[in-house]
């Protein structure tokens, strides 16, 4: 069985995560589309910390008999992995878009310097 202090600490930590994410969205420092994964992470961790019997059951599925809270760490790590992977895709898209912006800017500057008549389509 999960020691009670561990459950409490985990619950408080995941609740804090949810609170921080909420405040970041509210103050417009985090867009909703990037917050959904964090909210899911916080919600799942909170659920597993509070629902102690459930954590034991899940731990037993994976043969973790000695220390069920290890599952909390594993789930947390899994979510962090997913978030990181998501960020990699976001960064890739941003750098692609950045390239396009720089190219458009160069073309516009050239047009402005040299003057342009009717752009060819």
């Amino acid at each position: 069985m999960t020691p009670l202090p561990v459950s409490i600490a985990a619950a408080v930590a995941s609740f804090l995560l949810l609170l921080i994410v909420f405040e970041l969205i509210r103050s417009r420092r985090l867009r909703e589309r990037y917050a959904l994964l964090w909210l899911l992470t916080g919600a799942v961790l909170l659920a597993l910390s509070v629902w102690r019997g459930g954590l034991n059951t899940i731990a037993s599925w994976f043969g973790v008999e000695t220390y069920p809270p290890a599952i909390l760490g594993a789930v947390g790590a899994l979510f962090i992995l997913v978030v990181l992977l998501h960020y990699s895709t976001v960064i890739s898209r941003l750098s692609d878009q950045n390239t396009i912006l720089a190219q458009r800017l160069a073309l516009l500057e050239q047009q402005q310097r040299e003057g342009v008549t009717e752009p060819s389509r």
């Binding site: 909420f22 969205i25 509210r26 103050s27 417009r28 909703e32 917050a35 959904l36 909210l39």
Partner: peptide, 11 residues
Amino acid sequence: LLAIFVGLFRR
């Protein structure tokens, strides 16, 4: 739905 909810608390 999240955006609407958070929007209620937003400046």
